[in-house]
Every structure is written in C-alpha cells, then in structure tokens.
Amino acid sequence: MAMEIAQEKYSASVYTVELGAGPETGGTRANVIRVGGESTLPFLFQEGDMPNAPVVGLEVFDCEPPDLPDGLKEAYGDSLKDPIKWAKRCVEEFGVKLLCVRLISPHSDFGSRPVNEAIVFLKACLKEVKVPLVILGTGEQELDNELLAKASQAAKNERSLLGIASQNNYKTLAASCLADGHSIIATSPVDVNIAKQINILISDMGLDPKRIVMDPTTASLGYGMEYVYSIMERARLAAFSGDKMLAMPFILFVGQEVWRVKEAKDSGALGIKWEIATATAMLNSGADILIMRHPVAAKAVMKFIDVLMKR
C-alpha cells in the first residue's frame, strides 16, 4: 500500500515586502525585489506557496573598514579604496540584485567624518548603482538618528530598506521611513517576544506591516546559529497560524557574523565555506534576504537558491 505523506497546510502567510521603486512609482531603480509571501516552511512546495525566491545582497561600506579580514581584502582588492567602484563591481561583476550600503564613516572608530559626506556618497551610489538598496547606519544610536534621517531623505521614494530599529530606538527611523516611503529593519536579540513587540511598536506608529523586515540577529555556524534557527522557525509557525505581528520577512546579516569568527579570519578559503554553510542553513530556516560579504560565497548561495526554487 502506498504510504500517505503527511502534509501541513497553513491558513496565513508572510507579508510580501517590496524593495526598490522604478520610475513609474517615483524612484530610479532598475529592478524591484519582492520578498516574503510564503505560506509554507522553506521550499516545501507541496505544503504551500513560496512566491518569491530568497534574495542575496552584498555589502559595501562608505569607507574601507580597517579590520577587514584578508579573505575579503583579496576579493575586492583596490576597489575597497573607492566605494562607488566597489558597489558597481558587486552589481555588475558579481551579479547581486540588492546592495547593502553601510554608512560607517561618521563613526569615531572610522574617522568621524561629517555626516554630509556619507550622504554625498549615498547619493552617488544611488546614481551609479540601479539595484534596490539596504541602507544601514553606524550602529551608534544618537549618530544614526541624524545620519539615517538624512539618508532617508536622500533616498526619498526609492523604497529602500533602512536599518536598524531596535526596541529602544525605533521612533526616529520609523518616522523617516513613513515620510520618505521606505521600509524598515526591526531587530531583536534572538528573542521572539521582543521581535513581536518591536513590530507592534513600529506598526503602531502607522508604518504598514508590509514595510517591516525582521532581523532576528544572525549567528555564524558554530557560534549559536541553531538558536537563531529555532527562533525563526517559532516566529514563522506563529505567522502561519495567523500572528500578523510575526509575519514579516527575515533579513540575515550573514557576512557580518561569519567574517568576524576565527575560522574566517584565519583563512579566506575557509571563510567562504563558512559563509556558504551559514547562509544555506539560514535559507532553510526561513531567511528572505541574506546580506553577505564574499562574492564567491554570494554567487554559490544564489546558485543554490536557484536549485532549491525548482519545483
């Protein structure tokens, strides 16, 4: 007798978030990316739909970070000195459809340059690179409140993804996103309860839940990745059973986490493998956007996504 395969069917789905606005909607992006929309756990096409493939973005910084591991220095070479060239290579040479721009130069660790210089860079980037952008600040709250508000205005109507909002600091960024038509990244420290809370706080400010992407915090292979995995799974299952405040797509900063662990710092070759392994595990726990650092790893993961998305 043929065995009947047990399948789960869910009643609700993840919100679809749109990144990038083309000329028809007031922006200048050449492509629009849709993420989320799943009504099944990853790649279980018999159980539900996964209308949008996960997307990989590479990261560029507005100045060369001083502590970049050798593996990444070798990959980008001279272009690290010229962030616009770096950004263009990511798109033109390495083929990513999404670019993550980190504005770090105003931070005291990276030269305390005037905020306006970072904004000039961002504007140039928007002109030279036509894919949708993820725009991140320095990570320092007070500085980011000024920097990201200006970045938001500079990228007005481009429907970028701005980050990062936390439970203690979300109002300024949410207001900017609301005013300038962007979406927001809401972070939580590997904690599903806080993830839900910040989504509520932001949506209470009037930002459509379809403009929130969750950053559940990323951990590298060997450094707590499984905790992130289980939190993501728990949030997703809640979303599928109708919890709208956990039904946002996930963004994972894989590159940031992997390239600071010992294995990646010691060996570029191992770092690439480490980044691929972490990214693919995150795909299987429901990642919608992967922000990566090494172009070889990004390329391998994009290829892997193509294979997984074949129904």
């Binding site: 309860n193 839900k196 809370q197 509520i200 949506s203 209470d204 728990r234 109708g242 919890d243 405040m245």
Partner: peptide, 15 residues
C-alpha cells in the same frame, strides 16, 4: 496559544 510580547493584548487585537 500566542507568542508573548509586552503588548500582547494589542498584538492579539491586530490579528
């Protein structure tokens, strides 16, 4: 039956 968050009453009502 629902995932806790500080605004859990509000969260439930957003369902």
């Amino acid at each position: 039956k629902h995932i806790y968050c500080d605004s859990f009453l509000n969260a439930y009502r957003k369902r």
